[in-house]
Nucleic acid binder design. Structure first.
Lengths: 215, 215
DNA sequence: TTTTTTGATTACAACTTGATAACAAAGTTA
DNA sequence: TAACTTTGTTATCAAGTTGTAATCAAAAAA
């Protein structure tokens, strides 16, 4: 379980973050000013630091320079564009602007942890394994060469699995979204996926509607 | 346009929220105590409820348990961590602590609505569950494949349940509404629904009139 | 440039749907 | 009861939808 340091001086926000990250399964430590943040970070090894830019005593910018090696997500008040740029330059792994959706924060935390731990994103079902990072697809461990459009279509199906997607929707997801009405393009590509990956059962035709990847 | 229920006993704050959300393009309904909130929520379908924790008569905590399916943002003056945790556990979609910036509230409202838009609307009776968003029907958890017209007819019955519908009315609801007089089309489709879903009892024949879905 | 690959489109085959007809069964009236 | 009306059910087939191989222009690679 990853350990996260929350450095944020507004107690209400700090608490809210802690509650949500705890619920999401992370172990959290709260600090409320820059000096405390630095001391705590030196005493313990954290997998990630959520760092408010404007902290009492030491600013986030000053702290990040000392945190070499530890991933950081900057938390900034709205609209300070220059702050964000500065933060990223100084080595932040991501930033998030207040006020933010908790789910968004959790997604970013997950993403940074995934990235910094060198984990690869994969998606698997049946005998199919999709390496999302390098866009390669394996069936029973054997790589199946998909053409770019075919892969894009597959990813669209995965991201919208279990729901029926109209041809229009698929075109807007995979193709450059303005598109004249009536073509068989989607159909042909769907057939390719079915044939190459043996997905006849999984990619279902929804008559008069479109297609659905059923998992 | 999304409909939002504002449950907040301090009239000044309630009005302030209403004014701002109305300006932001939402349709608002104001209530000032917990009992009223619950009643109003049952009478109408809201896309979101802004729920003060400390309401007269019924607390936000008590109300949220009854509001299954409707997104909730808790509004609280307390900063007690345990309150928020309790709220999140009970299913609040987000939290906002008074005093708050109106812009922040609007941002959160937007975010929650965006997120919950994807939620599935379902209609259930007996052992039948209808997923309205993806037009799929389950009986005892097993999907029953309905043809497009069959599904349309079922939805027409659901939307007009407990009242007798003439064949003409059904045709105007389900078919492209001009239609010459005397065909057995509706009858045949009604039989399909009865057979596939075991609705012989529920879809009643009203002699000389039409059919009624009796729930 | 030439060659190769990609992928949109066409054309037609195969399949699905659902309106209708035909007749059986059930209900109504006298 | 018989005569008649209304509803239930099955089978059929035209229209509409989807599957698929072949073609060819555009893009990418050599």
């Amino acid at each position: 379980m990853a350990k996260i340091l929350i450095a944020e001086d507004e107690k209400a926000i700090n608490d809210l973050i802690r509650i949500n990250l705890t619920l999401a399964g992370y172990e959290c430590k709260q600090v409320f000013d820059g000096q405390e943040a630095l001391n705590t970070a030196f005493e313990n090894k954290f997998d990630l630091v959520l760092l408010d830019v404007m902290l009492p005593k030491l600013s986030g910018f000053e702290i990040i320079q000392e945190l070499k090696g530890t991933p950081v997500i900057f938390v900034t008040a709205r609209s300070a564009v220059s702050d964000r740029l500065k933060g990223l330059k100084l080595g932040a792994d991501d930033y998030i602007v207040k006020p933010f959706e908790m789910l968004e924060l959790i997604e970013r935390v997950k993403a940074v942890l995934r990235r910094t731990k060198g984990e690869t994103r994969q998606f698997e079902f049946d005998d199919i394994c999709i390496h999302l990072d390098d866009r390669r697809v394996f069936k029973n461990g054997i790589e199946i060469a998909l053409k770019p459009k075919e892969y894009d279509l597959l990813e669209a199906f995965i991201n919208n699995r279990n729901i029926a997607l109209s041809r229009e929707k698929l075109i807007s997801l995979v193709w450059d979204f303005d598109y004249e009405g009536d073509t068989r393009t989607v159909d042909v590509h769907v057939q390719q996926l079915r044939r190459k990956l043996g997905l006849s059962e999984r990619i279902q035709t929804v008559y008069k509607t479109g297609y659905r990847l059923q998992l």
